[in-house]
Design a protein around this nucleic acid. Structure first.
Lengths: 224, 224
DNA sequence: GTTGCGAATAAACCTAAGTATGGTTCTCCC
DNA sequence: GGGAGAACCATACTTAGGTTTATTCGCAAC
């Protein structure tokens, strides 16, 4: 079920609005949350089970997931672990009627945004959702930058990748040339190709790209 | 009270061994934890109150803090908040006999490593301590790098700082010169001074330092 | 009031980087 | 077997980067 802006006659469901996903087997809980989120203009999609959620193709917008710890077949915690394993990093807000502290710790350690005990105040839920959406927005922005860089990096030839690594590590052209056993002029040509393909405006720019791509000395400490 | 390696006749209390701090008003708890940690060779210092802990000058080694949620005067959570406010970032492991979920959530959101309910298994505590010490070690390593860079950066004159910012942003010497209204040769001189003072081996090296120092375009995105 | 330092500059000089233009040798693929 | 692209190299030229030596100015500390 979809509510929120998409349900209003004036708004489009364009992939711009943040979306809240709710999984709960209790229809009255789903409706109550839908109403709550709709009241603040948030697009909302509800599911009766984790399985249904997985069927659904997630839209490419900032979103979060609201999950009861006690789900029909799978526990909320196990579902959280499964999503992580499947490399799905949607921020999760847990709800529970009778949770305990170890559950809470496990959920929070695994990155949950919040863990609300029923009954909770509407405002607490809205605050958690705001935080979660914001977190997802940041994560998406970062992931997009990385994806674009990876795509550009993928267009480099093996030799160009090698040269980029050495150049961004701080070696001079002649050192790079000696390292890989070619003439300095060849390195210069590779370098030109690299700058064009990576769309780097300057060497510092390329260095920052390499940082983000995790190229070079292990984790990227300074003091090269 | 100090136990662990320092208490053994063969070891020095040199600032090398990780240290566990315990704050609990119950002496039997303190002793039990001391024994536990000593059994695995961890240096341990115990306190009866948060106040006592603050009196104590923390050694410069990876460490963590074990805290009962219910402290004599101050709640463990409030103490955690105070430490954060005082810019003390020691990882905290909470213990509690009768905590609740909101407390747990608050503690974990504030960065606690773990939140153990009494009675807990020794192994759970040891695992948490291992994680906490490791986390502190990483934090310290990172902080040290930043501190060194900041110290070097502080030796730069205002002009040099300005030039470093523009150069690491990717501007050519002539552009920097135009930007700040000096001759290109002057920029080159400043640049040389910068490289020496910062102990940068190459421009990419300097760029990475600037990244760590948070110099330049806001938070340091690529695509300059 | 002179000594020291930051800042700016100039001339001379050298090295590094970058860009053609032109050419060779592979290999892979159609 | 011919085209595409990768890798390589050379010559020639231009621009950018960097050091050394020396000079000037202002300001603050001694």
């Amino acid at each position: 079920m979809v509510t929120g802006r998409a349900a209003s006659p004036t708004a489009h469901a364009n992939a711009e609005d943040p979306t809240v996903f709710v999984i709960d087997d209790d229809a009255s809980v789903r409706d109550a949350l839908s109403n709550l989120f709709r009241s603040v203009g948030l697009r909302t999609v509800t599911f009766g089970s984790a399985h249904e959620f997985l069927q659904h193709k997630p839209p490419d917008v900032p979103s979060c997931l609201i999950l009861d710890i006690r789900l029909p077949r799978l526990s909320g915690l196990d579902f959280q672990a499964e999503l992580a394993k499947a490399d799905i990093h949607i921020p999760i807000i847990f709800m529970t009627g009778h949770g305990d502290i170890p559950m809470t710790v496990r959920a929070m350690k695994a990155g949950a945004v919040d863990f609300l005990t029923k009954p909770f105040r509407d405002q607490d839920m809205l605050d958690a959702v705001t935080t979660a959406i914001e977190r997802d927005r940041n994560r998406r922005d970062g992931a997009k930058v990385v994806a674009n860089l990876r795509a550009a990096f993928a267009t480099l030839t093996p030799r160009e990748r090698q040269v980029m690594t050495l150049v961004t590590a701080g070696l001079m052209n002649k050192q790079v040339a000696a390292e890989i056993g070619v003439a300095e002029i060849t390195v210069k040509i590779h370098r030109g190709h690299i700058m064009r393909k990576m769309a780097a405006k300057s060497l510092p720019d390329l260095v920052r790209m390499a940082q983000i791509l995790g190229i070079g000395p292990a984790s990227g400490r300074a003091q090269t």
